[in-house]
């Protein structure tokens, strides 16, 4: 009993420490975003002078709004394509035996491990030659490339847990392979697909390296890259307030996503762990 209570309090302390460690920088940014420019350097955690001016500022900044649109558009398209192809590839990896399967898994793992920074210069050259530089497609393509290994890996784990007999049953019931896949396997893998989609979207949404290197104007520049182009109202002033506000703004969609799909994600991560 005594030991149990001690371990509970031990866990509580550990949890509090971890949560504080993770949350303090986030809260600090949020606090900065509400501070009036004159009080940025006062060191107070709770703003002394509240203002929404920073937010009003970034939303009147056409570049940032355009950046948000780019981010959402590029993120959604990349995620969608990655999920569609990833689902099919993951299914093949999980269920079929075909020549080169190990090679495919190996290559996709390799891509996931590849240091992205080493690809930036070649990609820059290639995209300029192909006319993809500073376009949505120019960002969507590398994003899909890096999101695919992730989706293939996560989804094939989900597919492996769906009993194969269900598919045989569907075939016996008169389904074509595609019908069996679409009407039986995909609905069962849906939690996994949602989880994977969120992870892929977060990856695209958060990317800075490609976004800054493969764009030159607000035609395709995504929000994280746009923020780095913020300027203060005078050249002697740091755009601290706008950057904080923008950081909070681009964090919100992720938070909403995760909160909204939290149950799905948890269910997805654990589904099939217990024989049902």
């Amino acid at each position: 009993m005594e030991a149990g209570r001690r371990s509970v309090s031990g866990w509580t302390v550990a949890n509090v420490v971890v949560v504080l460690y993770a949350m303090v920088p986030v809260l600090w940014i949020a606090s900065l975003s509400f501070k009036d420019p004159s009080t940025f350097t006062d060191g107070s955690f709770i703003p002394r002078k509240w203002t929404l001016g920073n937010y009003a500022g970034i939303f009147t900044n056409a570049d940032f709004v355009r950046g948000l649109v780019n981010s959402i558009g590029i993120g959604l398209i990349s995620t969608f394509v990655a999920i569609v192809f990833g689902t099919m590839a993951a299914y093949a990896v999980a269920r079929l035996t075909f020549p080169g399967k190990r090679l495919l898994i190996g290559v996709s793992l390799l891509i996931a491990m590849f240091p992205q920074i080493s690809l930036v210069s070649p990609l820059f050259q290639i995209e300029r030659a192909l006319g993809l530089f500073n376009t949505w497609a120019g960002l969507i393509l590398p994003y899909i490339t890096f999101a695919l290994p992730l989706t293939i890996y996560t989804l094939s784990a989900f597919f492996r847990e769906i009993p194969w007999e269900l598919e045989k049953a569907a075939k016996m019931d008169g389904a074509t392979p595609f019908q069996a896949f679409w009407q039986v396997i995909v609905p069962l893998a849906a939690p996994g697909m949602v989880t994977t989609a969120i992870l892929a979207f977060i990856f695209c949404w958060n990317d800075f390296l490609f976004a800054i290197s493969l764009t030159s104007s607000d035609a395709a520049r995504t929000a994280p890259a746009t923020i780095s182009f913020f300027t203060g109202s005078t050249q002697f002033e740091d755009p601290t307030g706008s950057i904080s506000a923008a950081a909070v703004v681009i964090t919100i969609p992720i938070v909403i996503f995760v909160l909204f799909f939290q149950r799905r994600i948890v269910a997805g991560l654990t589904s099939g762990a217990v024989k049902g």
């Binding site: 007999e165 045989k168 075939k171 039986v184």
Partner: peptide, 18 residues
């Protein structure tokens, strides 16, 4: 293909669509 054979199968695990 199985679907062109017009046979129905009952599996040990029942294989019901959950």
């Amino acid at each position: 293909a199985p679907r062109d054979r017009d046979m129905a199968m009952v599996f040990q695990s029942y294989a019901l669509y959950p």
